[in-house]
Computed example of a mutant assay.
Amino acid sequence: MATKEEDVKLLGFWASPFSRRVEMALKLKGVSYEYLEQDIFNKSALLLELNPVFKKVPVLVHKGKILAESHLILEYIDQTWKNNPILPQDPYEKAMARFWAKFVDEQVGPVCFKSVVKADKGIDVAIEEAQELITFLEKELSGKDFFGGKTIGFLDLVAGSMIPFCVGRAWEGMGIDMIPEEKFPELNRWIKNLNDIEIVRECIPQREKQIEHMMKVAERIKLA
């Protein structure tokens, strides 16, 4: 186990699913790290220095090496600390985990949040389009405890930080049940499994606080 001080720093934001998934990975690996909370609306000189290209969290610093972008950071963590593997060993399964993780961040997240908030075609149409995307993930989970199989893995960290605990709470705040159990039994079972994992619970923000934050983000999107 990598329990000793590893000279690891993580710049993150409490409500960001992208930094939350990195924290989950570090905890899963047993890596000691210093967490540096950032104000993403008033970016610090340190954040701008360490990530001048994208100017956003998360940023991982390990022994002076600087990494940005959560998927790349997760892969680095997995390759640096070998215990409790995150990515599958099989090349095809590894590629598919990356494929679905990209799908979650580039399709599911934006459509299920921004599209519903904007609702240019009407709220019912927006919800239907979002649920069509979610159905792909429902099928991927069929017969499995986690996307990674019996244990939490790469896609679980990506989707788990984004769907139930970030975007999902925005839906709650809007009075929308986007993942009803009768329509998505596999996803609901998976969410319950995630909640049973201590490292996941440790990284999830307080519910009311997060809903309040997501509602503020929604207002910004409406006004944009």
Rank of each mutant, 00 (worst) to 15 (best):
K102D: 15
L36R: 12
I77A: 05
Q79L: 14
Q79I: 01
R20Y: 02
W100P: 07
L137V: 08
V104H: 07
E129M: 03
V22I: 14
H71Q: 14
R201P: 03
A97F: 04
P91M: 12
K139Y: 06
G143A: 11
P164T: 05
K216T: 05
E93V: 01
Q79C: 11
D196W: 00
K94F: 06
V22K: 12
E23L: 10
M214G: 01
K29M: 10
I179L: 12
I163R: 11
R189K: 15
I191M: 09
T151N: 15
P185F: 04
V111M: 09
M1F: 06
Q107A: 06
A25H: 09
L46E: 14
A130E: 02
P205R: 08
E181M: 05
S16A: 12
A218D: 07
V61E: 13
G149K: 10
M24P: 10
V104Y: 04
G64K: 10
E37R: 05
G168E: 06
W190V: 04
R189C: 04
D7R: 13
L72G: 14
Q79M: 11
V158W: 04
W81G: 06
E182G: 00
D145R: 14
D39A: 05
F13D: 00
K4D: 14
R169N: 05
P164W: 04
V8F: 09
V158R: 05
L11T: 06
K209R: 15
I163T: 00
A126E: 07
K121L: 12
D7P: 00
E34H: 10
L155T: 14
G153C: 11
I86K: 03
K4W: 03
P91K: 12
K43H: 09
K216V: 04
F184I: 02
E182C: 02
G143V: 07
S161D: 02
F18P: 01
L48P: 10
T80P: 01
K183E: 12
